[in-house]
């Protein structure tokens, strides 16, 4: 389970919705100073402490570019960015060649996503050919689970929990925070010039390849995705405890196992995530009707 359980999940969102507007406004305030100075890729720190930039015209231009590329909260912008990122990820690890597996994962994933606050995104799910144990999400509804993680799962409820975690990153637009904390957006905007639309622009915004997917989200974003992942699986009628079961399982993997190196680097430890879920759930699920694990239907990779 980032375990995904799991799981390494990175998700991104380009725009602040109303619930996140304050974050986005703070983000915009930081942009002029960040964009006005020369790129310093070796220093990923936020730019609040930078001295006022001396190139107002550049700052203004860059800010406008970003407003055009990012501030308009259309799902299409987000989907375009996510597709670029997803395409890059598939360049590193292609889909497992198993039609039945991929269709199955899309059915489970879409059903879980329908329980979320963004049911109408064009959701895409895929199992990628990697022995790593990990899962990823990209803006606009792209969710991936590695073959290594999938093979750790025991039933459909566990799959639903893992996918629920990743779906939550998409719903919460967590990748925006990653872009904020890095200089990717600033550097990308400088390189963009006037070109702010199309896949080139999307690539500029996300940096190199799918590198942003190896970045660490705020740990609170991971805990939040765990909580929401459990809830989405429960809403879908599954056994709510699939995600914590995957966390338990992943927690048994030695930290020096290379298959979990990236996952463990980018996520809080599985046992901490499990404990946080325990604190969050408490007695709140006591009246929940028993969910299904659908172990019989679970698709096993040959």
């Amino acid at each position: 389970m980032k375990t995904s359980i799991l799981l390494l999940a990175l998700t991104a969102g380009l725009l602040g919705n109303s619930a996140q507007a304050y974050d986005f406004n703070d983000f915009l305030k930081q942009l002029p100073s960040q964009l006005g100075k020369q790129p310093e890729p070796a220093q990923p720190a936020p730019a609040q402490t930078d001295a006022p930039a001396k190139q107002p015209s550049l700052r203004e231009n860059a800010t406008n570019i970003l407003l055009g590329a990012i501030a308009k909260p259309t799902d299409n912008d987000e989907i375009q960015l996510g597709q670029q990122l997803a395409g890059n990820l598939l360049g590193a690890a292609p889909l497992v060649k198993d039609d039945n597996l991929q269709r199955y994962v899309n059915k489970v994933g879409r059903w879980v996503a329908l329980q979320s606050d963004r049911p109408n995104l064009p959701w895409h799910f895929g199992v990628i050919d990697s022995t790593d144990i990990n899962a990823f999400a990209a803006p606009g509804g792209f969710v991936f689970v590695t073959k290594g993680l999938y093979q750790q799962l025991n039933n459909e409820a566990e799959l639903a929990g893992v996918l629920g975690h990743e779906i939550s990153h998409v719903v919460n637009k967590d990748q925006l925070n990653i872009l904020q904390k890095s200089k990717l957006i600033g550097l990308g905007a400088q390189a963009l010039g006037k070109q702010i639309k199309g896949s080139d622009a999307a690539q500029q915004l996300i940096g190199s390849g799918a590198e942003i997917m190896s970045r660490t989200l705020d740990k609170d974003a991971e805990f939040a995705a765990d909580r929401m992942g459990m809830v989405l699986a429960a809403r879908a009628g599954y056994d709510a405890y699939g995600l914590p079961a995957v966390l338990q399982e992943i927690g048994h993997t030695p930290a020096n196992d290379s298959r979990v190196a990236l996952l463990f680097k980018t996520h809080p430890a599985p046992d901490v995530r499990f404990a946080m879920l325990g604190d969050a759930v408490g007695s709140r699920f006591d009246r929940l009707p028993p969910g299904k694990d659908l172990q019989q239907r679970f698709y096993r990779i040959k």
């Binding site: 890059n88 598939l90 360049g91 895409h124 990628i128 799918a210 590198e211």
Partner: peptide, 24 residues
Amino acid sequence: RGLNEEDLKEAHYSADGIAQLDRY
């Protein structure tokens, strides 16, 4: 077939991969 940071950084867009993903 691992998937480390370097793999991700060096990754190139796969149009075929996106087309497959769309079909599913």
